[in-house]
Design a protein around this nucleic acid. Structure first.
Lengths: 191, 191
DNA sequence: GAATTCATGTAACTTGTTACATGATTTA
DNA sequence: TAAATCATGTAACAAGTTACATGAATTC
């Protein structure tokens, strides 16, 4: 399962708490992976039961005690095995709820489509800004995990994010233009 | 839930069987939505219980009897309501198992990364061909559901697919180039 | 004094996957 | 005669979401 190895892989960079993991997901790799707190703690529990990670409780300066998880030899072995046998076709999830809605939305009429595309365009521009923020933090994260050389590889992943957002923006702009030039008054669910 | 409305929306085009729906998912909207047979029949059952669709059994020329589902007035109402209240931020699922693997893969070394990116590039080129095939079938589908005007809107969705694949190809090519020009022999999980 | 951050979790539920079962007809 | 297509489902399980509970310390 991808999520469990995501967690193992992050802990392999550096020992972390469940809370740290949640933050890493939320404000750094969020553009290609996400996780709920409830899932994270669930996975941590099962990895620990398998002996792939160990935890120790430590008092925190602020707030409650922390439970810090570190990877074990066995965990590294597991991670390495998983990374090594990449399946021929990694089944990435293509599901896109917005595209689905848009696809069905044409049954409501063109104006709705235009309205939603305009809203989307704004969202994509916000996404672009968010990615720039992540880019800015990258160096910081690399320092945190103590591996400067990772930055080279992270740049590749981040660049994918930029390619994606830029292509979304172009698509939305093009589509709006296309719709503007369509003849009006098609029959739909409203009439 | 998106999947259930996807099903309702497709049935709204034209009465269909579970099998028809599965085919529609698989060879037409697969690039932004997918569904398992087991899910489809589950959702059909719950929509029917709610009175949003009705079914009638009909003998088939070939193979077993068909259960054909049609949308009801209530179902159209439901669909329209759902389409009308698009949430401000549609929570599309960004999870991408390949990107996650790639991100963690750098812990194994650069050669692995290069190898996987090359394989991916080939996959993206296959994706492009698949999309072209869908494009070819579009007219046919429009004819099947008896709504030629839908083609205009489907073109927008399809165009998104093309934008995506093309940006993936560019990204992979660029990233390979970037990796070729990196200094070699970084320490990793293997040493 | 209210909201945010730090920190860990549980419970109930929904959604998605994998594997199986059945059986006729058609095409290679 | 073997494989593919047509056609409908069930069962068991895995993964993901939502909502809740607790409570200290800090910032606005």
């Amino acid at each position: 399962m991808s999520l469990s190895y995501a967690i193992l892989g992050l802990i392999n960079y550096k020992p972390m708490t469940g809370y740290d993991l949640k933050k890493f997901f939320d404000d750094s790799i969020n553009f290609f992976w996400s996780a709920q707190t409830s899932q994270i703690y669930r996975e941590l529990k099962t990895w620990e039961q398998k002996g792939c990670i160990v935890s120790s409780v430590q008092a925190s300066e602020k707030g409650p005690d922390k439970r810090i998880y570190s990877i074990t030899e066995q965990g590294m072995e597991s991670l390495k095995n998983w990374l090594s046998d990449m399946p021929d076709e990694v089944d990435e999830d293509n599901r896109n709820a917005f595209l689905l809605r848009l696809f069905l939305l044409s049954q409501l009429g063109v104006e709705e489509l235009v309205f939603q595309l305009k809203k989307r365009l704004k969202k994509y521009r916000r996404d672009l800004q968010n990615l720039k923020d992540v880019e800015g933090k990258m160096q910081e994260y690399a320092h945190m995990i103590g591996k400067q050389e990772e930055v080279h590889f992270w740049k590749i992943i981040l660049s994918r994010g930029f390619h994606d957002v830029e292509s979304h923006i172009h698509w939305a702009e093009e589509s709006l233009e296309y719709l503007e030039n369509l003849p009006k008054d098609k029959p739909n669910l409203n009439n």
